Simulated scan of single mutants.
Amino acid sequence: MVRLPLTPAEVERGQRLGALLRRARGERSMLEIALDARVSPETLRKIESGRVATPAFPTIAAIADVLGLSLDAVWAEINQPEHGARPTHTGRNARKQLTS
């Protein structure tokens, strides 16, 4: 199976995810968090460094649980637009603009 290259937006989200997990981990060791989440330390290291920009949902769910992060908080954090970037329009506003 051929994996498509990541888009710049996916790479950026992966970097924000890694930064969030590093902040939430604080002074706790990567090994401790990885073992508690039942993922390999190498997997956690790659996610935190942004090398795995699109980790599997169960992996993120397990790490977030160990770190005490809600999945809603993780989602909100990684989907924030860059400073100065225009937010994308979704939902009713997008339909309204399309029909205008």
Rank of each mutant, 00 (worst) to 15 (best):
E77V: 07
R25C: 05
L69N: 14
I33F: 00
R16Y: 08
A64W: 02
W75P: 07
S70D: 14
G84S: 02
I63T: 05
S40G: 06
R28L: 01
R16S: 11
R86K: 10
S70I: 14
L21I: 03
A56C: 01
Q15L: 11
L31N: 02
A94R: 05
A53N: 11
H89T: 06
G68Q: 04
R28P: 02
T88S: 15
T99I: 05
L71C: 15
A73K: 09
A19E: 15
D65S: 07
L21F: 12
E42L: 12
R38W: 01
S70M: 12
T7L: 03
V66C: 06
E42R: 13
A73N: 10
A76K: 05
V52E: 10
A64C: 09
K96F: 05
Q15P: 01
E82G: 09
I60A: 14
R92V: 12
R45N: 01
T90G: 06
P41C: 00
Q80S: 10
T43V: 14
D72K: 01
N93L: 14
R28T: 04
I33T: 08
L67N: 09
R22K: 01
G18R: 03
R22N: 02
E48N: 09
R3H: 11
S49M: 13
R3T: 12
L4N: 13
G50F: 08
T90F: 03
E27Q: 15
L6A: 12
L67I: 06
A24I: 02
L98W: 06
E12M: 01
D36R: 08
I33D: 02
T88M: 15
H89K: 08
A19K: 06
K96S: 04
L4A: 12
R28A: 06
A9I: 08
P8Q: 00
F57C: 07
L44A: 07
E27A: 15
V39K: 00
I33C: 04
A56M: 01
R23S: 13
L21S: 04
R3P: 11
E77G: 11
E32F: 08
I33K: 01
A37Y: 00
P55T: 04
P58H: 03
I60H: 12
R3K: 15
L35S: 02
M1Y: 09
G68M: 05
T90E: 05
A37C: 11
E82Y: 09
I78V: 15
I60G: 13
L4D: 09
L31Y: 07
L67E: 09
P5T: 11
A24W: 04
P87I: 02
T54Y: 07
R92F: 10
P8Y: 00
F57A: 14
D65G: 06
T54R: 14
P8I: 00
R92T: 12
R13P: 04
